[in-house]
Design a binder for these strands. Structure first.
Lengths: 252, 252
DNA sequence: TTTGTAAATTGGTATTACCAATATTTGTTA
DNA sequence: TAACAAATATTGGTAATACCAATTTACAAA
């Protein structure tokens, strides 16, 4: 007979929950400073190592920020909790960025070719509509609109594949990536020539699907991702160079 | 002037990242047991409290499960998280079974071709070993062993792609499939000719990877999934026919 | 008032000891 | 011999303590 797992109360967990609920309920407001560990430990009637383990858990969750010699502070909660497992995996492991691009390239390539084989007239009309939105967005300067139109188009291609798993997967990936893009390299898409190239590439994908040419659709999709990867890498280098120059000027 | 934030290296963070990357890269597999804290602390050259803080962070992230007196284990979070959203959907909607197989076909095809391009000698040796295990399993009658060997082989191919996202996606998919489907049509593997064909197909995938032939690897992989799909459909029809006959005999 | 230095504060790391839950071994009994 | 139970060893959980390193604060000197 398998009995139910006994619920062993863990001290560090209890402390963590108590602190976390105080943060959530607003007793401890964002930016507030916690009492010193030695003091807080005594107030709670636990040892400092136990309290520290609880605090470390909250740091891992992003609820607390601690600075040596400074103190422990309730975080501003800028970071929303990652409910999506893909996001949770990738956000904090920058070493995986290369894998992510490769992954997206492969997935979107497959999805585009499937869409080319299966898109219904309704799908094609929807895609055409989204291409129009994309064109208007790139003509303007509204970054949020550009990003939204981009996500919508890729999402529509994925849905035209008529496979819910691919549609769901692409949706997860896109939302994660575009949240990242908006945070870090917002003006990547702003510059004219880049926007023009991106629009051409999206149109190439759309045309291939419209022509029901799976091979071309895959190729166009992969070329698009390759370009995005290259541009992002270029932008990252650029920013690093600028930062270095700035530090040099500051005499640091 | 705003100076760059000084990056104070935190020992517990460094330990956490090291352990986490080992988990993500598959060096530490789900269910694996970590060395005892005292031992691991000495191996890493850090104190036990520091190691514990790192472990607590990983527990908070859900990557590790620790049981007092039992040990610290790598959680199966990465095996389940990606497919969990799909699982419920698919259970209730049998019409999506086709999507799942198609998805798997596409993913495994891509993964096999990537493996053929990148597998190291160590990967090849591992695959060869698993092919041997698969052969022995198919010679026997132990369905659980057959299923386990099958999963292990496909997962090893995915790992040989050297892309952790694909590796985790495949792992997640396989676990979902073998949890939901195994019960119903476990004896798919039992019958002699089917087992023989399956073994041949696995060997074909392996050979293509060994020959570093991406195209053949993809083709072999897709042919394998197609056969599995066909056999499953056949078996399902067979069972339905039997059930109908039974109902007729029962006068319902 | 400003500035530089010393002191106090505070988080970070390490050592050690002991407790509690679990796993393993051993010995006894049927 | 097999099954069960007690003893033992292993392992994570908690605690106390000391010292280090970064930060903040206090205060004296310019």
């Amino acid at each position: 007979m398998v009995y139910q797992k006994v619920n062993v109360p863990r001290l560090a967990d209890a402390i963590m929950e108590q602190l976390e609920s105080q943060i959530i309920e607003g007793v401890l407001k964002p930016g507030a400073r916690l009492p010193a560990e030695r003091v807080l430990a005594e107030q709670l009637g636990v040892s400092r190592p136990s309290l520290r383990e609880a605090i470390q858990k909250l740091v891992a969750k992003g609820r607390i920020i601690s600075r040596q010699g400074g103190g422990n502070y309730v975080s501003d909660q800028l970071e929303t909790a990652f409910s999506d497992p893909w996001e949770q995996l990738i956000r904090q492991n920058t070493a995986l960025h290369g894998d992510v691009l490769e992954f997206r390239r492969a997935i979107e390539g497959v999805v585009a070719s499937m869409a080319a084989e299966r898109a219904t007239d309704a799908d094609l009309a929807h895609l055409k509509d989204l291409i129009g939105k994309l064109r208007r967005a790139y003509e303007g300067e509204d970054l949020a609109a550009q990003s939204a139109a981009d996500v919508a188009f890729h999402q529509a291609v994925a849905e035209a594949s008529h496979n819910v798993l691919f549609a769901h997967l692409v949706s997860s990936l896109l939302h994660m990536l575009h949240k990242n893009i908006e945070d870090n390299i917002a003006n990547l898409f702003a510059s004219g020539p880049v926007a023009g190239t991106l629009l051409e590439q999206h149109e190439a994908v759309w045309q291939a699907i419209e022509n029901r040419d799976p091979v071309a659709a895959r190729a166009a999709s992969e070329a698009h991702i390759d370009f995005v990867a290259k541009t992002m890498a270029h932008f990252r280098d650029e920013r690093e160079r600028r930062d270095r120059a700035q530090r040099r000027l500051a005499g640091v």
